[in-house]
Simulated assay, not measured.
Amino acid sequence: MAASSSNSNPPISSETQTRNWLDLPHDVMSTIFLKLGPIEIFNSVQLVCSLWRKICKDPLMWRKIDLNHLSDIHDMNYYDLEGMCRHAIDRSCGQLVDINLEYFGTDELLKYITDSTCNLRHLRLACCYSISDEGLNGVAAKLPMLEEFDSSHCQLSKDSLEAIGRFCPHLKSFKFNSQVFRHLCVESDDEAFAIAETMPGLRHLQLIGNKLTNDGLLAIMDKCPHLESLDLRRCFNINLGGCLGKRCAEQIKHLRLPSDPTDDYPFQAEVEDDGYGSYDEDYPSGISDIDFLSEDDYDYYVFSGESENEFSDDVDFHSE
């Protein structure tokens, strides 16, 4: 006997068909919007209706600002990221605690941030070539709550490191990575000594491509007793044989060695192939002629545009 019609799937109720997104609780909508990011919020979400616009203007929505999900440089040029960032900072009403300015940060924008909040805990300035020693030194005293700082691939010296270390006593995580190039070997422990002398509370330290030697590493080990993770990949002036290597292995829970792979690193960290053979072929003993270019050796490109400090809620953040 054929199956009766009573076994068929029940019809979809009218309530299910007419469910309204506007009926969702505000905290649920806020959670969804936070996963989209500032660009989508400013250019799409807040334009849907007055309710969504109200949610998007809640200062709690802007405790974290991250404009770093644009993977294409052309997309970065398409938007006025600095203007958008300033507008997001204004909406935070002083509650901003986490911001990522990767690629487009400037001295002026950094000052705008620190003038707006003294509660910043996480600051990422990776590849911000328009942030200077003077700019960072001028705002360091306004970052007393900073816990995490990333200044990788920036044109900053030991002076900035010392300022951050002195004025940010709660600093626990620091990234100060450099690009690796094939040149005559240059050694420098200036930055390592600055870290050792001013950042005793560090738990996590990443120094990919740094010029430090065993002396600088030993100073860090002595003065930063709470270190749990230490990343020394591409630090080819380091020799971890003997007592120093044994001490690092015993004292550091998560240790990345100079020769460890950099597959999980988001920036260029491999030695450039200059046509003279690979690193392993040229330096089978692990001793190289690798140097790290200073800021004077490189031309950098800035991807931020000029913008006004004040914006209306309907401002167009597309670059002209």
Results as ranks from 00 to 15, higher is better:
311 F>G: 00
284 P>V: 05
309 N>E: 09
301 Y>Q: 09
231 D>T: 01
229 S>P: 05
224 C>A: 08
295 E>A: 10
306 E>K: 12
232 L>F: 06
232 L>G: 02
278 S>G: 12
286 G>I: 00
251 Q>M: 12
260 D>C: 09
216 G>L: 02
278 S>Y: 06
227 L>M: 04
237 N>D: 08
237 N>Y: 08
290 I>F: 08
210 N>G: 04
218 L>N: 14
206 Q>W: 04
210 N>S: 15
286 G>V: 03
285 S>I: 04
309 N>D: 12
231 D>W: 02
238 I>K: 01
296 D>Q: 10
207 L>F: 11
278 S>W: 03
236 F>N: 05
243 C>L: 13
254 H>S: 14
206 Q>D: 09
238 I>N: 02
211 K>M: 12
237 N>T: 06
291 D>H: 11
208 I>H: 01
256 R>C: 12
206 Q>H: 06
227 L>P: 01
318 H>S: 12
259 S>F: 11
300 Y>V: 10
293 L>Q: 11
261 P>V: 07
254 H>Y: 14
314 D>S: 10
302 V>H: 13
274 D>H: 08
215 D>A: 15
311 F>T: 03
209 G>M: 02
244 L>V: 13
305 G>H: 06
297 D>P: 00
279 Y>P: 00
266 P>C: 13
308 E>T: 04
235 C>R: 00
244 L>R: 06
319 S>L: 10
253 K>Y: 11
253 K>S: 14
248 C>Y: 10
205 L>W: 03
285 S>K: 10
217 L>T: 05
285 S>A: 13
265 Y>A: 07
234 R>A: 01
306 E>C: 03
252 I>M: 08
216 G>D: 08
223 K>R: 14
307 S>R: 02
227 L>V: 01
280 D>V: 09
